[in-house]
Computed example of a mutant assay.
Amino acid sequence: MKKRVYFDKCGEMKFISHLDLLRFFERLFTKSEIPVKYSEGFHPRPKMSFGNPISLGTEAYNEVMDFETDEEISNEEVVKRLNENAVLGFKVHKVEEVPRKSSIMEEFRNVIYEINGESCDIDKIEELFNQPEIIQVKEKRGKVTKRDLKARLKHYERKGDTLIMEIENMSPNSYLDIAGVEVYNVTIKRLGYNK
């Protein structure tokens, strides 16, 4: 059976990378004695899947991850065991069973972010959002590609020096880069998904 875990990763935990998060869950499942199903072959790995990777230094709330198990264990017991063995800055809110074919990447496409910063930086981002096009230019191996990120910006609202934005399947860092705002000058939180 397949179970979906909803969790927060904040405080010091925001400094662990996506790869470290995979290892963290692997150790946490072992420590919590959660029966996770493993892949077959020379290097068996736990059958887990996540949504979009979280940028290093970004706090994330209501994140999702799926894992498969062969044994009967209640959702409430999974929540209890994970939280009992977790570290500061990590908390599981709920666990639910989902169909085996269910996919996080397909079901959770729109991500909600909160960006806090100085008025001048928030002004630059808002100005960018109000443009008819948001063109990102990338160069790779001498080839220049352009793409319009406006279509991926589903919604935004500003409250003082805070922007709340809903974007499709990407990090807000690309928008900050185009707007000329340094990532370390703002605080970014990932608040969850809009299905």
Score class of each variant (00 low, 15 high):
Pro35Arg: 11
Glu168Pro: 00
Lys195Cys: 05
Gly117Met: 05
Asp66Ile: 07
Leu22Gly: 03
Lys80Ile: 06
Gly11Pro: 07
Asp148Cys: 09
Arg27Asp: 02
Ser39Gly: 15
Val64Gln: 02
Leu88Ala: 14
Asn83Asp: 02
Leu28Gln: 12
Arg100Gly: 04
Glu84Trp: 07
Cys10Glu: 14
Ser171Leu: 04
Glu40Ile: 13
Phe24Tyr: 14
Ile122Cys: 00
Asn116Tyr: 07
Glu40Pro: 04
Glu139Ile: 04
Arg152Met: 13
Ile125Ala: 02
Lys154Trp: 06
Met65Gly: 01
Glu77Gln: 13
Val92Trp: 11
Thr187Ala: 01
Ser103Asp: 13
Asn110His: 14
Tyr193His: 12
Ile112Asn: 01
Asp20Glu: 15
Pro172Asp: 06
Lys140Leu: 07
Thr69Tyr: 10
Arg152Thr: 08
Leu19His: 02
Leu82Tyr: 08
Glu157Val: 04
Asn116Asp: 13
Leu19Asp: 01
Gln136Thr: 01
Glu182Asn: 12
Ile125Lys: 03
Glu96Trp: 06
Val111Pro: 00
Gln136Phe: 09
Gly192Val: 00
Glu182Tyr: 08
Phe7Leu: 10
Pro172His: 05
Lys189Ser: 05
Ile167Glu: 03
Leu163Cys: 01
Phe50Leu: 11
Ser32Asp: 06
Leu163Ser: 00
Leu176Val: 05
Arg147Leu: 13
Val79Arg: 11
Glu97Thr: 14
His18Ala: 06
Asn194Ala: 10
Phe24His: 05
Arg141Ser: 10
Arg4Leu: 14
Lys37Leu: 15
Met13Tyr: 03
Lys14His: 07
Arg158Ala: 01
Arg23Lys: 13
Ser174Leu: 12
Gly160Arg: 06
Phe129Asp: 02
Ile104Glu: 07
Ser32Ala: 15
Glu166Pro: 00
Lys143Glu: 07
Ile164Leu: 09
Arg100Asn: 13
Leu153Ile: 05
Ile135Asn: 08
Met65Gln: 02
Pro44Cys: 09
Glu127Gly: 13
Gly89Arg: 10
Phe42Leu: 15
Gly51Ser: 11
Met105His: 10
Ala179Leu: 04
Ile115Asn: 00
Leu149Ala: 03
Arg81Tyr: 05
Leu21Tyr: 03
Arg4Tyr: 01
Lys14Ile: 09
Glu40Trp: 12
Thr30Phe: 13
Ile54Cys: 02
Glu26Gly: 13
Val64Ile: 14
Lys124Trp: 03
Ser174Thr: 08
Gly180Met: 08
Lys195Phe: 08
Lys3Val: 10
Glu59Pro: 02
Ala86Lys: 12
